Amino acid sequence: MLPTHGRYDYHDWPTRRAYAWPGEARLAVYLGLNLEHFAFGEGLGAELAPGGPQPDVLNFAWRDYGNRVGAWRLLGLLDELDLPATVLLNSAMYDYAPALVAAHRARGDEIAGHGRTNSERQSVLSEAEERGLIAASTAAIAHHEGRAPRGWLSPWIAESHTTPDLLAEAGYAYTLNWCADDAPIWMRTRGGRLLAIPYPQEVNDIPSIVGRKDGAEQFADMVVDDFEERLHQTRDGLAQVMGIALHPYLVGQPYRMRHLRRALTHLSARRDVVWFTTAGGVLDHVLTLPPGTIPGE
């Protein structure tokens, strides 16, 4: 027998139970907007060009552009199209760019946990250190937002063997770390169940633009094609979740935003058959479904 994580069982797609999202939609779409802050002169960070010795000013400043400029332009686009967002928040942003977080709070966006900073991975920490990281990030969000976050995305999608357990024990209801499905599934933890909501590793600007070097037009086409194919697939009656992962230092660049606007305008024109929501909205609806509807329950 191969080693296994033991968090969920195999559930084949054709035998899933059918259910609908609000408005009888079969496709739920949410935007996962990553607001991240990075240490200067040390730690992890995506690179526009191969980094040199620290301090790596080129790549640090390129990422910082996202918080200073790109994120504000993305806010304008979300307002223009009247689209909600799940903000995946490094808690360091409260000290660095509080006005940016406040702007998302003012429009009613969901704030989800995304660690302290994307300069670190939680997967290399001891269990006590990882518990402390989760607690610190959660406490900061609860303090500023007036309530604790319900969802978590690890910086760099990095997990230890106990991360789902620690999240459930810290009061989290869903995780975005596991990209193994097109619909929510329940995971097992030592602290009870945890909902895994699909978060994209394909329709995600970092793997696309940074990893594969896709162009702005290609990434936008990917968003549209993924959306249209999912709409076609949902004719089988089975509900799906489509996440779109965005980072302001990437898609907040003007030439990329031009194509992102085209893609999101295309999607938003289909509100008649699609439910635009947040990851937390997906959780809320799942909790209303009859017992046994969601795999792993």
Score class of each variant (00 low, 15 high):
Asp12Asn: 15
Thr162Phe: 07
Ala148Gln: 14
Ser137Glu: 13
Cys179Ser: 15
Asp221Gly: 13
Gly192Lys: 04
Ala49Glu: 14
Leu246Ile: 12
Leu81Asn: 13
Gln233Glu: 12
Ala102Lys: 10
Arg271Ser: 08
Glu110Gln: 10
Ala106Pro: 02
Arg68Thr: 03
Asp181Phe: 07
Tyr10His: 14
Pro198Met: 04
His114Thr: 14
Asp9Cys: 09
Ala183Glu: 08
Gly115Asn: 05
Pro55Met: 09
His5Asn: 12
Asn90Lys: 05
Leu260Ser: 05
Trp13Gln: 07
Ile134Asp: 02
His144Asp: 08
Ala136Tyr: 10
Gly146Trp: 03
Pro55Asp: 08
Ala173Lys: 10
Leu2Gln: 14
Leu250Thr: 15
Thr278Trp: 08
Val223Met: 06
Tyr10Ile: 10
Gly211Thr: 00
Val203Ile: 14
Tyr255Phe: 10
Gly132Thr: 01
Gly113Glu: 00
Ala196Val: 00
Trp275His: 08
Leu83Tyr: 11
Leu289His: 07
Pro207Glu: 00
Phe60Met: 11
Leu167Pro: 00
Ser126Leu: 01
Glu24Met: 00
Asp109Cys: 14
Ala140Met: 13
Val223Lys: 04
Ala170Tyr: 01
Val224Lys: 09
Gln233Thr: 03
Trp186Asn: 06
Arg147Thr: 13
Trp72Lys: 02
Gly43Ala: 10
Asp225Gln: 14
Ala279Pro: 04
Met222Gln: 15
Glu120Cys: 08
Ala196Lys: 00
Arg73Phe: 06
Glu145Ser: 02
Glu159Met: 10
Tyr174Ile: 06
Leu264Pro: 02
Ala135Gly: 02
Ala25Lys: 15
Gly115Leu: 03
Met242Ala: 05
Leu2Glu: 15
Tyr65Cys: 04
Pro198Asp: 01
Thr189Asp: 06
Glu228Ile: 03
Glu110Ser: 06
Arg16Asn: 11
Leu283Lys: 06
Leu133Tyr: 15
Leu89Phe: 02
Gly280Ser: 13
Gly243Pro: 12
Ala20Arg: 15
Arg107Glu: 09
Trp72Cys: 01
Arg73Pro: 04
Ala168Cys: 08
Met187His: 13
Asp9Ile: 02
Met187Pro: 01
Tyr8Ile: 11
Ala139Tyr: 10
Val241Tyr: 01
Leu35Lys: 03
Ser126Lys: 02
Ser91Val: 08
Arg16Ile: 09
Thr162Tyr: 12
Gly191Lys: 07
Asp79Glu: 12
Pro3Ser: 14
Arg256Tyr: 09
Gly113Pro: 00
Glu169Leu: 14
